[in-house]
Design a protein around this nucleic acid. Structure first.
Lengths: 232, 232
DNA sequence: TCGATTGCTATTGTAGGCAATAAACAATGG
DNA sequence: CCATTGTTTATTGCCTACAATAGCAATCGA
């Protein structure tokens, strides 16, 4: 008991010391947006939200400015701040840029890959195969996410990681957001194996192309579901 | 006289109507940072700057939050906001990501390229050859910039353009900033021709690789000037 | 009835003020 | 002489208050 108390308190203090109130609000808002509690197009009422967080409007406004720069909200003067709504066109653009960045991850990893890393990746593949076989698609999504996260993080390129995650977040604001996930669900694990095999070969260009194409195929799936006029 | 007065006033009003004071300050600060008037590591004094812009501290703080999200400044609680200083390591990371994005530009352009576009690009190449021959390096840099800008913009992918420019800006904050330019100066126009040729071939992968490698070579030049221990 | 105009209200934009913090310096003790 | 502790000051963090704006509804005139 005595050992935990100071630790917890120190954590709280550290949080308040490191990140300002603005930072806390920003993360909170980002969470609300990404979980869909604040939906695309919805206005962020300053008074209402600052009351909810128990602060004044100042820090909240600073937080929204930051989110605006990150592309999660847009601000219209004298009208307010709104959760961004990513159009299908922009979503397609983002898929391309994300493909390029993910491709870079493949290229970099081809030079960094170790046996240990390959073992970990194969474990991921097996796990996803298993889940896919059981048709338990709700379990597939998080593992798939962890797989991609592991790959991107393993490059050791912090700039790349940050960018990649930013785009993944933005895609959550795409209209017909469900389609983004739907596209991912039908991903055959074959593409993943191609990526891992390319890494194992140590061939930079091949790995880059495999990673790039994986995202491009997601894009194509996204687009085709769009055309069929499916709705949420 | 009478005809101009209202127009000027309307321009001012339009600017203030469209973008808030925060937006104006943000652009102004970004300019100060990128031109080097505010140097990496330097603190942005709120009182001083808000007095300079003739506003209160609120809008200024919002502007700096936005710049923070863009990676141009960093904020330390209770200490202030500082112009970011990009380490050599981070600069190398940025070069890689920029290469990936620029490579995507090449890939996209390979499918979009027209004779008219090729003519324009060849005009750029000739112009740069000319300048290089005259050894007037100060003229080379802006044309080189315009060349790259033209390429990126021609993709029609606004997300790509925004990202690319963001990274170019960030690289301006790299320590030994002169080296970034110095690296560019010695660029042989041959690389540029390779890029244009790749576009003319219409081969996606080839174009992507040519564009990618062009930036990678810049990175290598940057790194080598770093290792020789050259200083500003 | 319809359109324009004019007030009203909710909300954002900006300003300025007080409290809290950190860095620099002075004072004190060993 | 050095280390440590108290004090001062510049500066940031946050809040409250006021001004300005946009959207809306009611009113007025045709």
């Amino acid at each position: 008991m005595y050992h935990e108390e100071p630790k917890v308190q120190q954590n709280d203090l550290t949080v308040l010391r490191t990140s300002s109130l603005t930072g806390v609000i920003e993360r909170e808002l980002e969470h609300l947006i990404l979980t869909g509690e604040l939906k695309p197009g919805e206005r962020l009422n300053e008074i209402q939200l600052s009351a909810r967080f128990g602060t004044s409007r100042g820090p909240l406004r600073e937080a929204t400015r930051s989110l605006q720069a990150k592309g999660l909200v847009e601000s219209i003067r004298n009208r307010g701040v709104f959760v961004r709504s990513v159009s299908p066109t922009e979503a397609l653009e983002i898929y391309d840029v994300r493909a390029a960045i993910f491709g870079l991850a493949g290229r970099l990893l081809a030079d960094l890959v170790t046996d240990q890393m390959l073992a970990r990746l194969n474990a991921f593949l097996d796990q996803m195969d298993e889940i896919a076989a059981s048709k338990n698609f709700d379990d597939y999504y998080p593992v798939n996410l962890a797989f991609h996260d592991y790959l991107v993080t393993s490059t050791g390129n912090a700039t790349l990681v940050k960018e990649y995650k930013g785009f993944v977040n933005k895609l959550h604001l795409a209209r017909a957001r469900g389609l983004v996930q739907a596209g991912g669900l039908s991903v055959s694990n074959r593409e993943h194996r191609e990526m891992v095999d390319a890494l194992a070969s140590g061939n930079r260009e091949r790995a880059q192309e495999a990673f790039f194409r994986h995202v491009e195929r997601s894009k194509i799936r996204f687009r085709s579901t769009l055309n069929t006029g499916a709705s949420a």
